[in-house]
Write a protein that binds this DNA or RNA. Structure first.
Lengths: 120, 120
DNA sequence: AGTATATATGAAGAATTTTACATATGAATA
DNA sequence: TATTCATATGTAAAATTCTTCATATATACT
């Protein structure tokens, strides 16, 4: 491996890191996770999601934009409404990994980070 | 499905959401991603990571703790040192998904969120 | 035991992210 | 085109997360 390709790898890695950061940041938010959960059931409009979650419309809208930017969801206009639906390919394979990881390391049901809690 | 099992599903979902939140939050940080990247190569001590990344020892230590709590890494003492190594099973399958997702939706290399950037 | 080296921890300020409110834009329909 | 319904956006304040500094703890060695 010459210097040039080492450099390329570094750049690639940096790029991957930026991607990963945006990818994971987008998913590290309770509102957005709850939204994804809603959309697992069926495509929904902004107001439907907001009502279901008991949150403000504008707040949901802000969060949907982030999910959209990361292509975790897509949107389609339906008359006055705009309907959001899930990118199942990514989300489902992702959640499979989380579930497996949790099953293996968080035996007490969903409560991950038991070690962390114990330490305090 | 009776009321009881509906409730169980809700609780399960909440639990999964908490798990997901912790899982993804842990990964949505540049320092921790860079650390993971280092550990892909080989197990390393705190100081080795800190030096490699040009960061403070205590800062790396704080961040390693979070990665440890989520079981993305594990630690073993080696004399005075403490050596951290990667949970490859989870991390590698996870990064495969991110890479695929990025390949599909971020055609310009690693720079995801092109839509987001364009909007401003 | 005392010292040196390696790592962990607590806490406060800095930085980032999230939310709420006000308001703007877009689409359908009278 | 005026009105209504649905969604988006700008921005400041609130909430959360991160980093830094000081210091504590742990291990090995003399």
């Amino acid at each position: 491996m010459n210097n040039n390709s080492v450099e390329s790898v570094v750049i690639l890695k940096k790029a991957l890191n930026q991607t990963c950061y945006k990818f994971f940041s987008c998913l590290s938010n309770p509102t957005r996770l709850a939204t994804i959960e809603m959309l697992i059931e069926k495509p929904m409009s902004v107001n439907e999601i907001a009502t279901a979650l008991g949150e403000e419309q504008s707040m949901i809208s802000h969060n949907l934009k982030l999910l959209l930017d990361c292509n975790f969801i897509e949107s389609n206009r339906d008359g006055k409404k705009r309907v959001y639906s899930l990118n199942r390919e990514t989300i489902e394979s992702l959640f499979k990994i989380v579930t497996n990881h949790a099953k293996k390391y968080c035996p007490k049901g969903g409560r991950c980070g038991i070690k962390g809690d114990q330490r305090k």
